[in-house]
C-alpha cells in the first residue's frame, strides 16, 4: 500500500502549504480591513479640523465687520472734531482721499467689471489658457493706469502693497487664496476704464488671443468695495 501512503502524504503536504498561505492572506485582508477602520477614524479628525476652520473663518468675518464699524466710527469722530474749522476740514478731506487711495475705507461708485476665466485647452496646451498671476496683474495695472481709484479682485481690495502671485492652482491676493474666475472691479470713470481695457491689441485682446476666457468689460453704476483687510505693511508678502 505504498501508493496509498504516497497520495496521502503528498496531499497532506500540499494542504499544509495551502492552509498556511490561506491563513497569511486571511490575516492580510483582516489587517487591511483594520487599516480601513483607522482611515475612517482619521476622517473624523479631518471633520473636527474642518469645523475648527469654519469657526475660525466665522470669527475672522466678525472681526472684519467690527473693524469696518470702528473705522467708520473713527471717520465720523474726526469729521465731528473738525467742526467749523475750515482748515482742519480741508485736511480732513485730504486725509479721507488718501485713505480711499490707500484702500483703508470701504468705497462705492461707478466703474467697470471684467471676469477672467480659465479657458478650455483645445490641444493640451493647458499652460496657455490658464489665468496666471501676471494676467491679473496686467489687467489691474491697466486699470490703475487708466485712472482707477479703487480696484478689487473677487471682493479683495487691491492696494499699493498688495501682492498678486500664483501659488499652485490658485492666486494669492493680500494673503487670501482665490481661484478662477477672477472678477476684477474698478471704480473710476467707467468710459475711460472700459476703453482702456478694450483698446485694440490691449491686454484683454492679448488674453483672448491666448485662449483665456475673458468677458466683455461692463460698466457698472454702483460698485461697492470693502476696505483693505490685512497687514498694511506686509500685504505683499501675504500675512496669513
Amino acid at each position: 500500500m505504498t501508493g496509498r501512503a504516497q497520495w496521502a502524504v503528498s496531499l497532506t503536504l500540499a494542504s499544509l502549504v495551502l492552509g498556511f498561505m490561506m491563513a497569511l492572506q486571511y490575516r492580510q485582508t483582516q489587517t487591511g480591513r483594520l487599516d480601513a477602520i483607522s482611515v475612517h477614524a482619521y476622517g473624523t479628525e479631518e471633520k473636527r479640523l474642518q469645523n475648527e476652520l469654519a469657526a475660525l473663518k466665522e470669527a475672522n468675518a466678525r472681526a472684519e465687520q467690527q473693524l469696518a464699524r470702528l473705522t467708520a466710527q473713527l471717520a465720523a469722530y474726526e469729521k465731528e472734531m473738525a467742526g467749523s474749522n475750515s482748515q482742519l476740514a480741508r485736511l480732513q478731506q485730504r486725509l479721507q482721499q488718501e485713505r480711499i487711495l490707500a484702500g483703508l475705507t470701504p468705497v462705492e461708485g461707478p466703474g467697470v467689471s471684467v471676469v477672467l476665466m480659465d479657458g478650455i485647452a483645445v490641444n493640451s496646451d493647458t499652460e496657455q489658457v490658464l489665468t496666471h498671476d501676471w494676467d491679473v496683474r496686467s489687467v489691474i495695472n491697466e486699470l490703475f493706469t487708466a485712472g482707477a481709484e479703487a480696484v478689487s479682485i473677487n471682493g479683495y481690495r487691491v492696494v499699493a502693497t498688495s501682492g498678486i502671485f500664483c501659488t499652485g492652482p490658485v492666486v494669492r491676493i493680500n494673503g487670501h487664496r482665490i481661484g478662477a474666475p477672477f472678477t476684477i472691479e474698478a471704480i473710476g470713470d467707467p468710459h475711460t476704464l472700459k476703453s482702456a481695457l478694450e483698446i485694440q491689441g490691449g491686454i484683454l485682446d492679448a488674453l483672448r488671443a491666448r485662449g483665456v476666457n475673458v468677458s466683455a468689460p461692463t460698466m457698472e453704476d454702483d460698485i461697492k468695495m470693502p476696505a483693505f483687510t490685512g497687514n498694511a505693511t506686509a500685504g505683499a508678502v501675504g500675512a496669513d
Binding site: L11, T12, S15, L16, G19, A23, L24
Partner: peptide
C-alpha cells in the same frame, strides 16, 4: 482520507499563529 484535511487545518493554524506578514505589494501574488 482525513490526513489532508488535518494538514490544511495545521497549515492554517501555523499561518495564523506565526508572526509572518508579507508586504501588501505582494498580496496579489499570494
Amino acid at each position: 482520507i482525513w490526513l489532508p484535511v488535518l494538514g490544511l487545518i495545521l497549515g492554517a493554524a501555523i499561518g495564523l499563529v506565526a508572526n509572518v506578514s508579507i508586504p501588501v505589494a505582494y498580496s496579489s501574488y499570494l
